[in-house]
């Protein structure tokens, strides 16, 4: 066997080794990404829980001070038409007198939070930031648009298992609760679950038959699982 032939055989064997190596690298990348995603999910959940603890303290303090805007937590979801003519000394929550007011907020770890979102059927309890940017969404869900007081709030969150990843399992009729930082509690019932494309900016805000909307990405990331809720009377 000449030297040239030997060299050619060696090269062809090397091509197989290269292909296998590339394959191993790709598999390793898939595994690394999986590990990262699991770690990132766990981190996001832990950070949200830390904020939630502080937020709960803020809300507890607010409820202790009746003039800060708290309503009776035993009667959640107070709406304007449930309030009769005010007695001379009655305290009326600010948001009923001025539904257009900016939602009150507190700053925790440099981020501004407007309240917390609870979905008991999915065992979800998460803080909600005043806005939603990619950076903020890595910590907790955020307000995409609207206001609880104007009955048009839209909240979005990452589909981490520790955030809103379980939203796909929610059912019509399930309860969703939003508590603002003044301790006002708004209890909703899921009325509709729809899927909206990632470009459906107008569609997300459309309609007046809902009071609160929560959305997150589907598994592929192209569409948004969208949960419409109505305030319980």
């Amino acid at each position: 066997m000449s030297f040239a032939v030997k060299r050619m055989k060696k090269r062809k064997n090397a091509a197989g080794v290269v292909l296998i190596s590339i394959g191993m690298i790709l598999i390793a990348s898939a595994l690394a990404l999986t590990v990262y995603n699991i770690w990132d999910d766990s981190r996001a959940g832990a950070e949200a829980n830390e904020v939630l603890e502080q937020l709960d303290e803020v809300i507890k303090e607010a409820v202790k001070q009746p003039s800060s805007g708290s309503t009776d937590l035993q009667s959640p979801g107070v709406v304007v038409d449930q309030v009769g003519p005010p007695a001379y000394e009655e305290y009326i929550p600010d948001y009923l007198l001025n539904p257009g007011k900016n939602m009150p907020s507190v700053i925790i770890d440099g981020r501004r939070y407007i309240g917390k979102l609870d979905i008991p059927s999915l065992n979800i309890s998460l803080p909600v930031t005043d806005e939603c940017t990619l950076t903020l969404l890595k910590k907790s869900p955020g307000r995409y648009s609207g206001s609880v007081y104007l009955h048009n709030i839209v909240i979005c969150g990452h589909n981490y298992a520790s955030h809103l990843g379980r939203l796909k399992n929610i059912l019509v009729g399930d309860t969703v609760i939003f508590t603002d930082v003044d301790g006002n509690v708004f209890e909703y019932s899921v009325s509709e679950i729809v899927t909206i494309p990632g470009t459906g900016v107008e569609e997300m805000k459309a309609g007046d038959d809902w009071d609160l909307t929560v959305f997150t990405c589907n598994k592929g990331g192209k569409a948004r699982i969208t949960v419409r809720c109505v305030l319980k009377k």
């Binding site: 995603n37 939603c132 990619l134 969404l137 990452h158 589909n159 981490y160 990843g165 990331g221 948004r224």
Partner: peptide
């Protein structure tokens, strides 16, 4: 577009 709220699972 709406905010991207999905994790990077699709490349896995």
């Amino acid at each position: 577009t709406l905010p991207q709220t999905g994790m990077m699972w699709w490349p896995v």
